[in-house]
Every structure is written in structure tokens, then in C-alpha cells.
Design a protein around this nucleic acid. Sequence first.
DNA 1: ATTTATTTTTTACGCGCGTAAATTTTTAGC
DNA 2: GCTAAAAATTTACGCGCGTAAAAAATAAAT
Lengths: 343, 343
Amino acid sequence: MDEPKIRNMEDFATVSGISRPTVSKYFNDPQSVRESTRQRIEAALEKFDYRPNMYAVNQNRRLTKNVGIVVPYLADPFFAEIARNIENLVIETGFRPILLSSHGDPQQEINNIESLRSIKPAGVLMAPLGRLSDREQIRAFCDDVPTVLFDNSIESAGEAFFGMDNEQSIGLIVDYLCRTGEPPVFFEMRTPPNPNAFKRRNAYKGKMERLGLEPVMLQVEGEGWDFEQIGFNGASRLISEGRLPTNTVLCSNDRLAIGFLSAAFELGRKVGIEPDCTLRVAGHDDHPFSRFTCPRLTTVSQDYTSIAQKSVETLFSLIDSGQRAPSRVTTLFDGRLVMRGSA
Amino acid sequence: MDEPKIRNMEDFATVSGISRPTVSKYFNDPQSVRESTRQRIEAALEKFDYRPNMYAVNQNRRLTKNVGIVVPYLADPFFAEIARNIENLVIETGFRPILLSSHGDPQQEINNIESLRSIKPAGVLMAPLGRLSDREQIRAFCDDVPTVLFDNSIESAGEAFFGMDNEQSIGLIVDYLCRTGEPPVFFEMRTPPNPNAFKRRNAYKGKMERLGLEPVMLQVEGEGWDFEQIGFNGASRLISEGRLPTNTVLCSNDRLAIGFLSAAFELGRKVGIEPDCTLRVAGHDDHPFSRFTCPRLTTVSQDYTSIAQKSVETLFSLIDSGQRAPSRVTTLFDGRLVMRGSA
DNA sequence: ATTTATTTTTTACGCGCGTAAATTTTTAGC
DNA sequence: GCTAAAAATTTACGCGCGTAAAAAATAAAT
């Protein structure tokens, strides 16, 4: 097509008729050059399709235009959704998102932050694994790179934390369940990987006590992130052995509830609020699939749009200011009751 | 801790007592230096925690140690799972995976491959969006970068393609359904985003005709990747309007089936193979959630472990050889019947 | 101990770009 | 048309590393 092969910015500057420093200026901020100059560059850009070598560009920059996003488990649609939201917001701002999943593995999480270090990101948005996280390593990382945590917090790590208010949300659904039927028992993993689970456990306990009711925990065995299976196994045993003390079950999260509902169905227990039902099941999170369970799952929705939005906003205000946050702010969003058929 | 601040390889070479070129050699391949030298470097590495500036390293390399992974929709647990598999395999090989999702958007897909270009990856593993993909752009990209396609193919693009044999898998489940009850109707989107859907449609049609049966398509409206919702809406209408011509439904994929089952449950239609059931529903893919539907979904499993493995193997044999594939090979894996309660 | 093969060191250059300083050109204001 | 301000150009240096070539040091083998 076009005669000269463009190998670098020098070549491109020549064919566009502009000096290299000005072209460099253009690529760093197109608005920083005169209108007429911009047009000439962009005209050349159409003809020759040159793009700066990103490695050379970033070599001398203390910070790049990269933003890291770390989630604990990407195969969980909840995190996939929130990652998608965050990714788009980061792109809108003109930065390049680098999405990393820890796959539920603490070692992977360390690898991910190591990997991010070498990328020299302008900032990082991170949802830590939680219980299994190497807190010290994460704190050290947060000291070096402006980091906003979300979903679950690590004490005194990161510039800010955005999550949901488990006290509020659990209170909300416990209230609802008590108001409309028997008080709920709490169905959860005995050793959950996610610290939010502990907060919810305590929130349930506190709320029940405040209501003058006795909290009952049903703690099932299981490790890892295969929550549906763990919920299914646990519920199968509880139901078939008749060890359910009430007809109302509040699950620590929707994925456990999905397993629970599946087990209940298998065992012929009719779940729901219809007169012929013998069991009520509620979840927590408003997981993308919770509207397609049988029956459809009553739950508390996490406001992940707000979590994503606020996390990104906060990170970029830090990046723009070039400073660190004067103090670590924790922001908790309220859950919203989502009434469907299961409770 | 340690006095001298290590700013670059020069500094590190000094403190480790080795010359910079040798240190450079070590980082490119630790096995390429003498045992005693390696130990001295690694001893220094423990003390001083230096890592090469990846931007400087890659600046002059024609190819980096990066491998791109592009999936059409990461919020779909099926792709999340296959991405997870591929990521791990890539890491094992000592390369750095760069995971990108097109979020169901053709423009994003283009952005992703543009983004990959500037990273100069050694190779790319890509599952194209399919119907909406800009085939020309993808072909152009595949010409420049060694690329292996998976999940769905784009004619004459990429060095190889790995996917599943829809003819075989649909044949398998149609056979099963016909053998055990009424022949199935085919439930699908009228305009699916994924070309595999067309292959399955044709496979169903062909198989039914070969069995001397009349194929019946139930095509529901809907755009995008919100398959469960689309399946739910479509099934709700079909069931409530009594437009289901048989009692057996084969869904084009599991996510549609999940929506279908949810709708059937809502409308009080009992699904399964028990005597009191009035509907059988089967899916396709063995989606991670299909074992927790109510009833549990009978389906055909995609062998995504093999797809991931073979795709990665093929890409790395290309990368290692430094050559392009002599001819484009298409490999299709058989599906396996997964009998559960729904059909 | 000598020869030979292997590895390391020394020296030096280049990659593609950011960026600073001084100079020249263009634009805007009157 | 003149002046001041804004923008572009010229020139030059540095970043952190890869890598080539020649010299020196080390290891292995006789």
C-alpha cells in the first residue's frame, strides 16, 4: 500500500510532517497539541497505522496507564459481573485494565500482586481472597501501589474499602423472614474461605438476639469455592436426616442456597411461600442465577454497580491527585431485599 | 535492611558480584549459566529482591513471553472455567497469560485484539464472538500473530481450531431422547450470537431426518448473552400458551435450559423422567450449574479440559518451532452424555 | 602442567521513546 | 503590521536492558 514502512515514532513523524517530540506529545495527550497539528497527525494515522511501542513508552514512566483488577475467583459469576463493570469503567477513563483472578488460591494471589508490581500500574482494584490471604504481603503491596479494596477488607490495607453492610443486609432479611413466618436458622460453611461469611454469621447472631430469638447455626463441611456442591451435600444430609429445626433457612450466600434448593428438590421437599410448601429458603447476594432457581430465590441484593463505581472513582481521584489518601475510608452499601418465591 | 538500593540490573550485578551480561543471560534462562554462578545470583536475589524491568526487557524483543487469551463472555461460567484451565496451563509453561473478555461486544473484540497487538504476544488463544465477529480483522490479526482458535471457528483464520463435534453430541442426545420417550423439539434462539448454535440446529435437523422423524424448531426472540432470561421468557410463553408440540425439549445450550426449567417450574409443569412428569428437558454443554437445576439437567458434556489442553499444546509447539502451521487443522472433540433427572 | 572447551567479563552499541532547553515558527490580539 | 503569547522544532541526553565481539578467566581433560 504505502511505500515507507513505519518502524518507530521517528518514521511516523517524518511521514506525518511533524516533529517527533510533538508527535510524542500528541500520543500522551491529543488535546495538548494545536488543532491543525492534531488533524495532520490523525490523517497520517489513518494512512499508516502506527502505534507507539508500549514497552518503550512505559520504560521510563514511573507509572503506566495500567490499572490492575484482582478478584478471588473469576469462575464465580458474581465476581465476573463486578469485574466486567469495573473493567468498563476503567476503559472509559482511558486506562488499560489488567484482569487477574486468584482462582481461590492464596499462592496465586501472591503471584498476581507480584505480577502487578512488574507492570508498574497506576493503581489497583482488589478483592482479596480473605481468610487465606497473606495479609502482610498484601499490605506491603498496598504501601507501594495505590490500591482500593472491595468486596472484602483487610485491616489497614489499601487506601479505601468498598463493600456491603452485612449487618444491615442480614438484619433486613432476618426481619423479613421473622415477620412472615418462622425465624430462620443460618446455613453456612463451617470454614468459609470468605470473611464476609463471618460477618454475616455474627450479624445473624446479633440480630436474632436483639429480636429475643435463639440463633441456630447449621454449619456444613467443605473447603474451597465449590459452594453449590457444598450446599447441596450439606442440605441433602440435613434434610434426609430430619435435622432441620425450623422450616426457614437463611443461607450465607446465594450459591449455597442454589445447592440447598437443588437438594431440597431432589428430596421432594417443596420450597416456597405457597400454602403447600414445607420449607422457606433465602439467600444473600442476588447472584446472577438466583432469579432462575426453583423456586426463584428470595435474597438480598448486593449493590455491585455502586461498589464498582465508587471503587473506581476513588482510585482515580487518588491517581489524579498523585497523592495517597489522608486516611483509610470504609464505605458500606446497603443491601436491598429481593422478594421472590422461595421465602 | 540492605544498604544499596537496587535500581537496575547494573546495580544488581554489582551486589551479586557477577557481570551484567551474565545476569541478563540468567534472567533469560537460568539454565544457561554455570551452576556456581546461578547460585550466587540466586543468593543475591534472596537478599535484594530485584526483578528486571519488564518494559525494558520487552522493548527490543520481537516477541514477548506473553500469551493472550480472548473469550467472548467471561461472565458466562462456561468460559470462565475454560479460561481458568487455559490460564493455568499457560503459567505452567512459564508464560504470562493476558486474559481479555469481549463482553459479547464485537467492538470490544476488536479492541482486545488491537490491545494484544501492542503487547507483542508470543501467541494467542482465542474464542471468537462468532456471528458478530469482524472476520476480516480477526483474520488479519491471525496473520500477524500465531493464534489458535477454540470454541468456535472462523473460516481460514488461525493456525488451528479446537472445538466440539456438534454433529456427534447432538446426535447422541437426540438418540437418547428418542430411545427413551417422545422425540425432542429443538428450543433455541432465533438469532443466536454463537455460531455453534447454528451447527447444533443443523445437527438436530439432520439427525431427526435420518431417524425418519420430523424436526421441529421452537425459536425464541432475544438478543445478547442473557441466555437464561431469554430461555425463561420464551419458555414461559410457549408453556402458558400450550404451544409445546411434544413433551420433550432439547435446548440448544444449558443456559437456555436453565431458563426453561425455571419457567416450567413457575408454571407448575413437572419436569423429569418420573411417571408423574409431563415434560422432559435436556441441555447441551454440561454447564457448571446444570447439576444444580431442578431437576438436575440431563445434558451433553463439552470436554473443555481437552479443548484447553490441546489448544495450549498446539500453540506452544508453534511458538517453540518459531514457525507457522503448515496447514490449518480442525479438531473436534466428542461430547459425552450426562444423564441426570430432567430427561 | 598443559591444552582445550566452556564460561564470564569487558566494552560498546542500539532499541523506541520521554523529555528538557534553546530556538524558530505560528497564531492571536490590537 | 507589529508585538506578545503559544506552539512546534531542533538538539541532545537518558532510561534499562539485549546482545555482539573480543579478551580474560575458569573448568575439564589429557
